[in-house]
Design a protein around this nucleic acid. Structure first.
Lengths: 211, 211
DNA sequence: CCAGTGAGTTAGCTTATGTTAGCGTCGGGA
DNA sequence: TCCCGACGCTAACATAAGCTAACTCACTGG
């Protein structure tokens, strides 16, 4: 009944659009991203796409879905990626990890997914963008990859659109207007947030919400 | 490091709008709903509400959030509720349950949340409603609470709106149009689906999607 | 018996966001 | 060097969904 993380740790590489994991595959390993970004997404038959999770350097990918036996959402690289592949021993669907903050990451995943649900269900374009960029900046900061108020943000506007449930065109429009109001700068895959507080206000976060 | 479900099992009751769990409380127990419906939701400062999970008879509430130390979304009763309260031993954030299909329920929660994300992010009103009603019917069926093509559905149109990220008015409009097309009947908290296949088509589900 | 409340319904109008199309720039590959 | 495809950007127009408000119909409680 007791499970362990096996010792196996391969270093692996991916290019943009490459799959880290595929649909309908039993996940037997988790990727610990060392460098680069990835996402989990779902494609509808007519081409609509929804990104359901973003993975940044330092992220485990994916604690949540490792709990399921088969997964119907692939994980794809958004940039070049360097990662370590950690195989798991899974018995009876229970997962136990004694060495790293696995359960902490799990809890974060749960909370993030929930935040996204609220965002997609009830927030305006400005609020969604503010929320997303804030979240990403904060995660980069915690990963030690932010420099002052700035960090890398290697997403295309279409990626952002598919994460926020908007269109690329509308993302562009909305970003322009936010730029012109001075609450953020974003060009050539680089994000700067002059005033964290102002952006936080725009994000319509509750008093208890993290980020 | 080994945790157990303690023996404690109290029978508890709730009335509509009563809290099963509150915000910012450390969850030390899970509710097993015997009868009635509940939901988890988030309230924005201006009154907007998003339901992030629905709990039906037979559901555990909530496997996902029991993984976090404190939770920022309350669970409230939507109807009269009878439930058994199961206290947990939680050590270091890990949860282990040897007696019931806890991990199966966990996996289902993860998948449902993900489905909802796609729905809220990328689907039209008709698709969202078809998807939600289909999911609820299927869950009722599996709980042994469906009778042929029918089941109870004790949600108000506003509840449905807050689950699907729409307005009550628009839910009403859309339901009307679906009714007039004969793909569903819904009155006095009772749902009938004359043609499961037709509704499935409207829901824009992928080939791998459950429900 | 009536007043009050919550729910469903419908209509008219408004608006945020989607759609389509086109332009310019950049960088990589042949 | 020259394509060619991604990407960012913009404008004009289309539409799904939001907003407000009113009316009805149960129910419930006094």
């Amino acid at each position: 009944m007791l499970n362990q993380i096996a010792a196996s740790e391969d270093l692996v590489f991916f290019r943009p659009h490459q799959f880290l994991t595929r649909e309908n595959e039993r996940p037997d390993a988790l990727f610990d991203i060392v460098e680069g970004w990835a996402c989990r997404h779902r494609l509808l038959s007519d081409g609509r796409r929804q990104i359901t999770a973003l993975y940044l350097p330092g992220d485990l990918c994916d604690p949540l879905w490792s709990l399921t036996s088969t997964c119907n959402e692939p994980v794809v690289a958004l940039t070049n990626i360097r990662a370590t592949r950690r195989t798991l021993n899974v018995a009876d669907g229970y997962i136990l990890d004694r060495q790293k903050g696995f359960s902490t990451r799990l809890a974060e995943s749960v909370e993030r997914q929930s935040n996204w649900l609220v965002s997609l269900g009830r927030k305006t374009a400005v609020e969604r963008l503010a929320h997303l960029l804030l979240e990403l900046f904060e995660r980069m900061r915690r990963a030690g990859l932010a420099y002052g108020q700035q960090c890398a943000l290697p997403l295309t506007q279409m990626d952002i659109a598919d994460a926020t449930g908007l269109t690329a065109v509308h993302v562009n429009r909305t970003l322009q207007s936010m730029r012109s109001k001075g609450v953020l700068e974003l060009h050539s895959k680089w994000l700067r947030i002059p005033d964290l507080g102002a952006l936080r206000d725009l994000a319509a976060l509750g008093p208890n919400d993290a980020v």
